[in-house]
Simulated assay, not measured.
Amino acid sequence: MRHGAYEGHRPSYHAPHEAALTQNGREQIPRSLPLPEGITAIVTSPIPHARQTATLVAHLTGLPIVATSGLLAEWRAQSNVLGRTAETYPPAYRTWRARHLASPSLRCEDGESLTDLHTRARHCATFLQHTALRHGPLLAVSHTLFLGVLTHLQEGPAAFVTPPREPRGSSPSAACSPTASPRHCTFRDMNDEGPTVRPPPMTCWTQAATPWRFHCMSRSCESS
């Protein structure tokens, strides 16, 4: 599940970690229900607007939050772009943006490189599978860019910017099932706003072995 709308939420905006859900963000959550059938537990990013989203879902559904993991956190931008939009990005960050696809291991100051992000997403996929084996099918609450990479691991670091075709008006959810083979996840997006880079589509992903395979779950979803 992508978190609800937060304070300052707009395109090309790098939210400060402390940004909280807005009233609109809180109102989005009941509209996202019901969740996919069979979910028995929630895992969440520790970033406050994701954690608040998970807490509200837990309250509305009665599902327990069984883990809070930094593996589900959003891509870490360099500190001095937090709270900024594209018009005020510093020169070093603009230079990094121009070079990051050609050099995915390149970092900008204290930010994550695309290679760092993809490696974390691979570790997160393993974490979700192991957690689902203990707790049953999971709802994972996370963030736009990270979910885009997590749901397209086979594309490597380039998944950061490869835009999928996305069904409009879809509601958010991400469910991970521990069934022996294959494992399944369903992703739906809560927001029509937010970063324009790669919001995840409504997708089912299965893994009997690598690589991940993706199948559209929505009647309105277009093939990519």
Rank of each mutant, 00 (worst) to 15 (best):
A140K: 07
T151A: 02
Q154G: 09
E112T: 01
T68I: 05
P200V: 11
C221A: 15
H123M: 12
P48N: 10
P36S: 07
S69V: 03
A67I: 03
L35A: 09
S223A: 12
R97F: 04
T196H: 11
T206H: 03
R168I: 02
H100V: 03
A92T: 10
L21F: 05
Y93F: 13
Q154K: 04
E155H: 13
C108T: 10
M190C: 02
H123Q: 10
P211N: 12
S218G: 15
T22Q: 10
S105H: 15
Y93W: 13
E87H: 09
L71M: 12
P46S: 04
G136L: 08
S32K: 03
H118N: 13
L139C: 09
S220N: 15
H118Q: 12
C216G: 00
S105Q: 13
R219S: 07
A92N: 14
G169S: 06
T115F: 08
T53H: 08
S223L: 11
T55K: 03
S224P: 07
Q207D: 14
P64A: 00
W205Y: 07
L145E: 04
A98S: 15
E155W: 13
R168N: 01
R76V: 11
A158S: 12
H135A: 01
S113W: 02
L63S: 04
A208R: 06
S223Q: 12
F146N: 01
T162D: 11
G169E: 11
D110C: 07
L150N: 04
